[in-house]
């Protein structure tokens, strides 16, 4: 083999090695390039605001000392928050609202889903579409029409009640009725989502196990209790946790219908935060509320993620 040949050979393999290295470098960098923009946005527009919020919660910060960055005052924003009786009121209102809406919408959605999932495809499709419309509808429009319908003097619901000889009800200004009205609106908004997930779960259930139970002589109730519900349990847990996340962050409907009233009876945590943010002249207390809200919602999300992981849905 001539010297020249050896050189050619060497240079070829050098070029190949270079190409391979390039390829490997590309392999290493390209994947990170794909996620870089998303990570940059999440770090700067989500993580940074959350950290900034945590800092503000330890500060005395007003519109006046805003430019200079405020003054550290330790835990006193938190101490004030935990001494504020309206904070506990809001915690309670949110809790009641979440429990009522999540339970009601789960039960109703499950009943409807059980009726339509197997033998009635037409009814299933119509139901899915009909129940999803309120969820997609702009909440401000929804609040507007509900206020219109629940109006004490001229609302159609009080008119319908009057046909049944029931006296007018002040749906949005009676403390007890107001939270119930909001519950109905909340269920109305979110039932479609629950229904969709439950129907998807039911349709994924193998037909054989139901048929086997039928052959074994299980009646309707036994099939539901011992076959369907156990199979559906993971989906139901997901439905419940998503329901909790959704209901926990309710704001627009409440703001637009009762505004948190009467006398704080419907002041959910979102409204409480908003009030603090705009009625008080300083930002520290609102930041402290946000931190508490973040903590609660992290607890809910982490348990949801654990369910999703475990069940491999």
């Amino acid at each position: 083999m001539s010297i020249q040949n050896i050189f050619t050979q060497l240079s070829i393999s050098a070029v190949q090695a270079q190409a391979r290295r390039n390829g490997r470098n590309k392999d290493r960098f390209f994947p990170w390039l794909t996620v870089a923009p998303a990570m940059a946005i999440i770090l700067s527009l989500m993580l940074y605001p959350l950290i900034y919020n945590l800092l503000v919660s330890f500060k005395y910060l007003t519109l006046i000392n805003f430019r200079r960055g405020g003054r550290f005052i330790g835990l006193s924003n938190y101490i004030d928050l935990f001494r504020d009786s309206s904070f506990y009121n809001s915690l309670g209102v949110s809790f009641v609202y979440v429990v009522l809406t999540v339970t009601l919408q789960l039960v109703l959605a499950l009943i409807i889903a059980l009726f339509v999932y197997r033998d009635r495809p037409w009814l299933r499709k119509v139901t899915t579409l009909g129940l999803l419309l309120p969820r997609m509808m702009t909440p401000v429009s929804a609040a507007l029409v509900w206020r219109f319908m629940l109006n004490y003097e001229t609302g159609i619901i009080n008119y319908l009640l009057s046909l049944l000889n029931i006296p007018r009800l002040s749906f949005l200004t009676d403390p007890f009725l107001a939270i119930l009205s909001l519950t109905v609106i909340g269920v109305w908004q979110h039932i479609g989502f629950d229904f969709l997930l439950l129907v998807t779960g039911l349709m994924a259930m193998p037909n054989e196990i139901l048929e086997a139970a039928q052959v074994d002589g299980a009646n309707w109730w036994e099939r539901l209790r011992y076959v369907i519900l156990p199979v559906l349990k993971p989906v139901m847990v997901v439905v419940i946790l998503f329901g909790v996340i959704n209901s926990f962050q309710v704001f627009d409907i409440v703001y637009m219908t009762t505004g948190g009233g009467p006398a704080g009876a419907t002041q959910v945590l979102g409204i409480y935060l908003y009030r603090k943010l705009f009625l008080a002249s300083q930002f520290g207390p609102s930041a402290a509320i946000s931190v508490v809200l973040l903590f609660i919602s992290l607890l809910i999300s982490v348990s949801l993620i654990r369910v999703l992981r475990r069940e491999e849905l």
Binding site: M46, Y48, N53, V56, L277
Partner: peptide
């Protein structure tokens, strides 16, 4: 986790930023 974060907790820092 970010997907499940309620927007409410971001409103104050966003307002300030």
């Amino acid at each position: 986790l970010g997907k499940m974060l309620p927007p409410t907790v971001l409103i104050l820092p966003f307002f300030l930023i």
